[in-house]
Amino acid sequence: MAFKGAIEIDAQHCKGCGVCVANCPTGSISLSRMVNGKGYNYAEMVGDACIGCSACALVCPDSVITVYRVKI
């Protein structure tokens, strides 16, 4: 059984600290080149390797990540 995941990031409240990027086991999250209203390079999902493990959301200090996961 395999899992496939997706994340949704509240870009306006993300502070772009990058802790989620360092903790993602599949490299599915990176800091955007765009900035949000406060001038931070917010995090965004990249690629389709996400397995929905929630590691990014667990270490997020501002609770801006929602994680979805399905069995495939």
Partner: peptide
């Protein structure tokens, strides 16, 4: 990704 992002698939949220 749009098929995965459904309320019943949420495993972690604020």
């Amino acid at each position: 990704t749009a098929d995965i992002k459904k309320p019943e698939n949420i495993v972690y949220r604020k």
